[in-house]
Design a protein around this nucleic acid. Structure first.
Ligand SMILES: [Zn+2]
Ligand SMILES: [Zn+2]
Ligand SMILES: [Zn+2]
Ligand SMILES: [Zn+2]
Lengths: 154, 154
DNA sequence: ATTGAAATGATATGATATATCATAATTTGT
DNA sequence: ACAAATTATGATATATCATATCATTTCAAT
């Protein structure tokens, strides 16, 4: 949730969608912008409300869910299962393709840091999985705790 | 979700609660038993229904949530954030104290395997966390995929 | 312009979770 | 054994999260 150059990110998002032959409509763009400007993950209902404030237009929550689905399929948005909220991908403007995401979620200020999962960690995960004869399916790690700032406050 | 000796597990659960000076009431025991006998994680509402079938007594969902909270605080039950369902801890009857749990969740048959997180994996996690100046707070890993059985079927 | 596909709207409903105040059961101190 | 304090549970309402379904609009291709 660090500062992002929204404009640049949106350009990259448009490019990415064009490359994949999917349509980043104006409403979908608004949803993504709302999340890029948010300081923490938001629920679908919060997003609908922020959309209204931003555009002065009403949007059905049903539509928000659908647009979030679209954005998630295209790795522009992630859903945090541990709190049922959505967050813009932190790596949209990065050149590399999207990797397994790892989220560090601060239980005090709610800010989230998305990092790529470290090589060694991936390896350890794979070992563990293999040892249990399990076949992994797009993992995503969500870790709760305290961010640096909130540690200092306590 | 492998076969468990429910009776033995319940004895150990009672002992553990006694040791910690908390009360494993008869209703709480029923809830735990329901989960021990379930073949997959269950929602609070499903648990309420199973409780009714088992005891022929009605139980308010509100109470189920409270009892689940109690059981979770005492590491007898875990909540899977990724599907909002609850599962009995697979290690109640183990002598060792409860470690960081890792869940392998089959997206086909819904069965869940709870394993202790491997040493190497823990180490890699800690490295990753430390590198980001984050302070972890009772982690829990949930990994989705296919169990061995379901892999063979496909 | 016609037409088929994709996106969005409208409406209803289901599923999950919490807040709050009341009552019952259990523990503790005497 | 009793009263007081604490803990557990019930009852009720409501908040929050998510999906199903059918109608309408928008867009792209011919
Ligand atoms: Zn991402
Ligand atoms: Zn913080
Ligand atoms: Zn466990
Ligand atoms: Zn399976």
């Amino acid at each position: 949730m660090a500062k992002v150059d929204t404009h640049k990110v949106m350009q990259q998002a448009e490019r990415s969608c064009a490359d994949h032959g999917v349509r980043l409509t104006s409403k979908r763009k608004h949803i993504l912008e709302v999340l890029l400007n948010a300081q923490a993950p938001r629920s679908a209902y919060e997003i609908a409300e922020l959309y209204r404030q931003k555009t002065e237009e009403n949007i059905p929550v049903m539509s928000v869910y659908r647009m979030l689905d679209f954005l998630m399929q295209n790795s522009l948005v992630h859903k945090l299962a541990s709190n049922n909220k959505f967050i813009a991908c932190a790596h949209i403007a990065c050149s590399h393709s999207h990797q397994t995401p790892q989220f560090l979620i601060c239980d005090n200020c709610q800010q989230v840091r998305e990092i790529g999962v470290d090589k060694q960690l991936i390896h350890a995960l794979e070992e563990s999985i293999e040892h249990n004869h399990f076949q992994l399916n797009s993992p995503q790690l969500e870790l709760h705790g305290l961010c640096e700032t909130c540690q200092q406050e306590s």
